[in-house]
Design a protein around this nucleic acid. Structure first.
Length: 428
RNA sequence: GGAGGGUUGGCUGAGCGGUUGAAAGCACCGGUCUUGAAAACCGGCAUGGGUUAAUAGCCCAUCCAGGGUUCGAAUCCCUGACCCUCCGCCA
């Protein structure tokens, strides 16, 4: 959520900055509602003030044993007027609030102009895509030859966009999770965190998935308004919702492995093959709760932590600075890490690292106590995938494939693979 | 699933329907004292919003949430959420 004060003092400027990301702010409607709100609020508060004074006078008169009937008569019609004003005010505030909750974050200055992913700017590359002396397969075909990757079984169990893994391949998948968590907790200073995979709507509002993106979520049936998490960002970031963190505790750094559940509504026909886009996938998420002045440094650092995973696994990638039209609703700046996939002959997103500034913090009322300031201030939140596990598995299969259909396990995963160094067809 | 108890400021914890936005303690901030620190003493210290040049005043709201009763609600009534205890069930 943006600072509501931007809707008052800097409406046009705010609209201009939002236009950069293709969001059209209804300046006229907001200005009109604001003017009305102001008038109604002042009037409501005047009436409340009058009621308070008169009620106090009645109490004092009663204490002295005076006759209060004349005073009671004098306030007879105040109640109705006040009630009417209060209802009008709350309707206006609801309307403004609904608009405000649907407004995305303002892109940072360092975010390039642009409409779509075509306009994203490459920041750097790491690693050289391997040159194969045979036609590299994609992970579906590799999995087919190896065995242990079964989409048909998953579609029988559930439906499309799920996968069943088994044997050494399933172990490799698990090894990736352990490797990533170990790396971030022992070398990058994150605290391992286990969280619920089901959250309530307040949490989803806090990080920005609700109210606007309900269709992307799996909602649970039943008496509670519960949802499956689309990312660990939701439960982990909401740890500080309605909390005041002491200055000395900042920054907070959390690393969590969770499954993620996404309805993928609106992505019909895209990435239907393989496990690039699934309804259920594992991810190791990095979340930082930071001092407002340090969020951009934190974004750089966190992105670097995600990059280390790719480097240790020897997977070539590039870092993209997303353009204003391509960054997510809550983010003010986002870096995507794109891993090289020989089977597709393209770089594909494997991590997305964003700075949200105070956008999520304001929705969550997540604050910190500054020694200099009397009042608690909003923290900044930063997060990123470190990494998406399923896509990392895909990248390993495709980058480490051999002509005979086997796949070499990168050294960094050896401690987790119980002696398996190579996945071979028939042995998997 | 059954039966009880609870939810008050950063924390602990008082609060008769009427100057209670809220006692007290802790924590924190400032000061006195001290070579310095501690202790002691003095003072300050909730959050959100409106108005405003103002982080000054003034005003409004907020004691889990939402309704209700009342001139007036932290206090009374209803509904819900969450927490705790006991019983039952259960990995």
């Amino acid at each position: 959520m943006l600072d509501p004060r931007l809707f008052r003092g800097e409406l046009d400027n705010t609209a201009a900055q939002l236009a950069r990301r293709g969001f059209e702010l209804d300046v006229e409607a907001i200005a009109r509602l604001e003017t009305e709100r102001k008038a109604v609020q002042v009037r409501t508060q005047e009436l409340q003030s009058e009621r308070n004074q008169r009620s106090k006078a009645i109490g004092q008169a009663k204490a002295k044993g005076e006759d209060v009937q004349p005073l009671l008569d004098a306030v007879a019609d105040l109640g109705d007027k006040l009630k009417q004003a209060e209802e009008q005010l709350s309707a206006l505030q609801d309307e403004l609030g609904a608009i405000l909750m649907g407004v995305p974050n303002i892109p940072d200055e360092s975010v390039p102009d642009g409409k779509s992913e075509e306009d994203n700017v490459e920041v750097r590359r790491w690693g050289e895509p391997a040159v194969f002396d045979f036609e590299p397969l994609d992970h579906v075909d590799i999995g087919q030859r190896l065995g242990g990757l079964d989409f048909d079984a998953a579609s029988k169990l559930t439906g499309s966009r799920f996968a069943v893994m088994s044997g050494p391949l399933a172990r490799l998948h698990r090894a990736l999770i352990q490797f990533m968590l170990d790396l971030h907790t022992t070398e990058h200073g994150y605290r391992e965190t286990y969280v619920p995979y089901i959250v309530n709507s307040d949490s989803l509002r806090g990080t920005g998935q609700l109210p606007k993106f309900e269709e992307d979520l799996f909602a649970l049936q039943g008496e509670h308004d519960y949802y499956l998490i689309p990312t660990a960002e939701v439960p982990v970031t909401n740890l500080v919702r309605e909390e005041i963190v002491e200055a000395a505790q900042l920054p907070l750094r959390f690393a969590a492995h969770t499954p993620c559940f996404r309805s993928e509504a609106g992505s019909y026909g895209r990435d239907t093959r393989g496990m690039i886009r699934q309804h259920q996938f594992e991810k190791v998420e990095l979340v930082q709760i930071v001092h407002p002045e340090h969020s951009f440094e934190a974004l750089e650092a966190l992105t670097g932590h995600a990059e280390v995973v790719l480097q240790r696994l020897g997977l070539p990638y590039r870092l993209m600075n997303l353009c204003a039209g391509d960054i997510g609703f809550s983010a003010c700046k986002t870096y995507d890490l794109e891993v090289w996939l020989p089977g597709q002959g393209k770089y594909r997103e494997i991590s997305s690292c964003s700075n949200f500034r105070d956008f999520q913090a304001r929705r969550m009322q997540a604050r910190w106590r500054s020694p200099e300031m009397k009042k608690p201030e909003l923290v900044h939140t930063v997060n990123g995938s470190g990494l998406a596990v399923g896509r990392t598995l895909v990248a390993i299969l495709e980058n480490y494939q051999q002509a005979d259909g086997s796949v070499i396990i990168p050294d960094a995963l050896h401690p987790y693979m119980a002696g398996i160094r190579v996945l071979r067809p028939g042995e998997v």
